[in-house]
Design a protein around this nucleic acid. Structure first.
Lengths: 244, 244
DNA sequence: CGTTAGTTTGACGGCACTCAAAAGTTGTGG
DNA sequence: CCACAACTTTTGAGTGCCGTCAAACTAACG
């Protein structure tokens, strides 16, 4: 199950955003063979299982192919704090390179298959392939930009809108309709990620439904007015009809 | 002013946390020579000037030697949002590697001197020096861990405590007393960074002074009870003496 | 000494948290 | 297929923290 032929892997990887790493760098067929030779695949990882946990030795980075992974920590009072959701094409684990120990947990939120890239082997290969090295830097760099999305003190509705639109964009990148979201994560996890409570998350969604912005059906969410959602996500003030 | 002799540079770099990059990798003297050959220095950068701004082409990463730099963006309503403060030994600019364009501004908050590391030259050198490549990955990785410090929905006093202790730790790393802070940034900038308003920041500091946690003298802040501060910074609940 | 920017303090209101309970959903065994 | 338990989600009532608006106060600088 772990080793596939090069041909199979090519097919497997073609749907993956990671393919920047695999294909877009003028690597020779022999180089590609080597790169794919070190990638391991893990499939049908069950909900609740972990890719890694706090304190685990760092050995590999992970690329999500299908499903959804959350990275989180637990604070002193035992509360879970979600730091990010990682879906198709996203990478995980870069934060642990330096101390060679993971500093957060990565748990499956929706049944997953991932590519496992053993870090040391990857680096060994990168030494011989400058274009691979460049690619790795690009992919790491991309992970930095994510945190610019959610201003800290922003009102809840703004953050929720930004969140929904972010999911929408990610879906669209994979050729799926941008206005129809099937949330992989619970309200609790959304709330934790956005920095408020479950109740607030729930109230917010029903409120936004009443306003005609979205339609909520359990974990299905339809974005009815992406224009307005974008306005709310951007605009710090003037977010609602102010009584003058 | 830009080019110094190798001997001068060694002296200059010896106080810099970046010296992991420069010295701790068994590079041969010749390698070191080459590495230092591409580093440029900029000194006495005045307050308010920029290392780079949104949209600037990405050409280099920066290492702060002295002073303080803030990275920030401005949102749709023109409000400034501070994303981080970078002081001695910190690196800046990694977020821009991929799109090759800076996505935030970097402004001097306190008179600065920095090392400028031209990215392309650095990568070219890294191709020949595997240990330098490793080092670069380490340094980038370190930048990721920073965001784990400030949980989003945490109460203001908790975040402020965490902030002060973070500054304290950084000072200590450089052999300066950990309990005596000379803030480089304004209240406004602190507030923006922590996600609340100037007024709240100000009120908070005076409140914490009354509680005996700190002593405030303008931009001088003495940490009087680091034990208690640590408690507050960690603990989500039970932060104050609860009436039972 | 006057002007200006930064900081502090006060009063008031609203958004989001807490506590609490109902309603809906999923899984398990009878 | 139903009943029951465990969990998730929703809704409600009350409170408190923090934001907004406004003004006084304090350096710093020309």
């Amino acid at each position: 199950m772990d080793s596939l032929t090069s041909g199979q892997l090519r097919t497997a990887c073609s749907t993956c955003t990671l393919n920047e790493l695999c294909w877009q760098h003028g690597l020779t067929p022999i180089d590609l063979e080597q790169l794919h030779g070190l990638v391991r695949h893990a499939e049908n990882l069950p909900i609740g299982s972990h890719l890694f946990q706090v304190g685990d030795k760092f050995t590999a980075v992970y690329a999500v192919r299908t499903g959804c992974v959350k990275s989180y920590t637990t604070d002193a009072s035992g509360e879970e704090q979600v730091h990010g959701f990682h879906m198709t094409g996203d990478l995980l684990g870069f934060d642990a390179i330096y101390p060679e120990q993971h500093r957060c947990n990565a748990a499956i939120v929706q049944t997953c298959s991932v590519c496992v890239l053993p870090y040391q082997e990857l680096m060994n290969l990168a030494v011989r392939l400058p274009s691979l090295q460049t690619s790795l830097m690009h992919l790491m760099s991309r992970e930095f930009s994510i945190n610019l999305l959610f201003p800290d003190g922003a009102p809840a509705e703004q953050r929720m809108s930004a969140f929904l639109l972010d999911l929408s964009r990610r879906q669209e990148r994979q050729g799926r309709p941008p206005y129809e979201l099937d949330l992989a994560m619970s309200r609790q996890e959304i709330a934790s990620y956005l920095g408020f409570t479950v109740e607030t998350a729930s109230r917010l969604l029903t409120k936004m439904q009443k306003e005609g912005l979205i339609k909520v059906k359990r974990r299905l969410i339809y974005l009815m007015d992406m224009e307005a959602l974008t306005q709310i996500a951007r605009h710090a003030s003037s977010n609602g009809p102010t009584k003058h």
